Amino acid sequence: MGITDHIYQDLKKRLENGNYPAGTRFPSESTLADEFSVNKMTMNKIVSMLAEQGYLIRGNRGAGTRVAENRTRFKGALAFLGQLKPYSTRILSGMTAETTRNDFMTIIESPRIEELQYRLQLLKNQGVTGIVSIGYGIPEPPQGMSLFCVDCAILPSIRQERVHFINSDNFQGGQQMMKEIMRRGHGEILIFSSERFAAGPNASVTPRIRGFHEIMKQNGIPDFEERTFYGAPNSLADAKRFLQLYLKRYPASTIICTDSDGSAELIHRAAWEQGIECPGKIALTGFGDVTRLPVASINQNPERQGELAARHLISFASGAPPPEPLMEIVDTELTGAENIPILIS
């Protein structure tokens, strides 16, 4: 532990133990700098950290710093690491609901990848004890900090210390979607994936795609792999190429099943530019339940994922984290099934 962290924890413990009564003036930075044998700049940083955590209230210049009332203090702090998109915002909503119930602060960070480890260390220095992460792969948390990766497409074969996982049951979700497609009489099915290679150029087939394939195989569609196209993430060019190649190869196709709502929106745009009505003449499905398109999708319960991750991290903050990494699965549910046309009565 560095000198800054050591002094911060010492003063924080004094405040929590009531050594400095609520409402009284906190010792000056000069006094504390002398006590701990550090310069005033270091002490100013530490006092600022305590104020950000709700332990102190800074007055106007010259008015000094006062000890906050207990009710104004947060019990701890967690951070959300991710870009604020429709799906990740729902994870954040579940997380903040849990932190609010437990008087924890939530800090939102969306750093560039090259700044990631530096920002994680800054968060630790600010007293953050846990991270909920989406879209950053599997970051390495600093010592003393735990991290939950939420909704990873592909789980690692080797687990890291202090890195835990909460995922929706995407294999179940893939099966739910394909069972409903089959139940409604579709047999000429295409699959478009733009999620697989987000994890890397040699990534495994994702659980949701394996769920699609399993049900197709059970229903006598042996060429399910040949009917699946793997494109680059967010590539409109790949979506256009898929439509051109696969609708020519499988002209009787009645539905395109995608592995994310983002993929469904790519197909919709590519089809519109090529004069194809999809969804419409060709039905379309998504995965994630965040699109405004009139399509069936899979609700991955992201609010529940964020809530559970925060709940575990809050419990870790008050005691020792588990000796082995946690892996928790959240159920999925089919939504918008009425948007899948019925081909048989």
Results as ranks from 00 to 15, higher is better:
Y136H: 07
V132Q: 01
P111T: 09
M145P: 03
N167V: 14
N125A: 15
Q121L: 08
D169C: 10
S133L: 06
V163Y: 05
G174T: 09
P111S: 09
I166Q: 00
S133I: 05
S133C: 15
H164R: 04
N102C: 12
G130W: 02
N102M: 11
I131N: 04
S157T: 14
A97E: 13
Q143H: 07
E98L: 09
F148T: 03
T106E: 00
P111H: 08
H164A: 02
I154H: 01
A153Y: 10
A153F: 10
V132S: 00
Q126S: 13
S157E: 14
I113M: 11
R159K: 12
I113W: 03
I131K: 07
Y118I: 12
F148S: 03
D103H: 15
F104I: 08
P141Y: 08
A153Q: 09
I154M: 04
A97P: 02
I107N: 01
R119Q: 10
T100Q: 14
S110P: 07
V132A: 06
P111E: 03
T100N: 13
C152H: 06
K124C: 08
V132G: 02
L120K: 01
N167C: 14
I131G: 06
E98I: 14
L155N: 04
E161G: 07
G144A: 04
I108N: 01
S168W: 08
Y118W: 08
K124P: 04
H164M: 03
R101G: 06
I158K: 09
P142C: 07
L122W: 02
N125G: 13
H164W: 02
M145V: 15
L120S: 01
T99Q: 02
D151A: 11
S168I: 11
P142S: 07
Q117K: 11
P139W: 05
N170Q: 15
F165K: 02
F171E: 12
S146N: 15
G144R: 00
A153N: 12
V132I: 15
E161P: 08
R119W: 01
I166H: 01
Q126C: 10
L155W: 02
L147P: 04
R101T: 12
D151R: 03
Q175K: 15
V132R: 00
Q121R: 06
N167L: 13
E161H: 10
V132F: 05
A97H: 10
P139V: 11
E109D: 10
F104D: 00
I154K: 03
E114F: 14
K124T: 08
L123W: 04
I166M: 05
Q121D: 05
N170I: 11
G137R: 04
T99F: 04
I138E: 08
C152V: 12
E115H: 11
E98F: 06
G137N: 05
G173D: 03
I138T: 13
G135F: 05
F171W: 14
G174W: 05
E115R: 13
E115D: 15
S133W: 00
Q121P: 00
E109Q: 11
C149M: 07
G127T: 09
P141I: 10
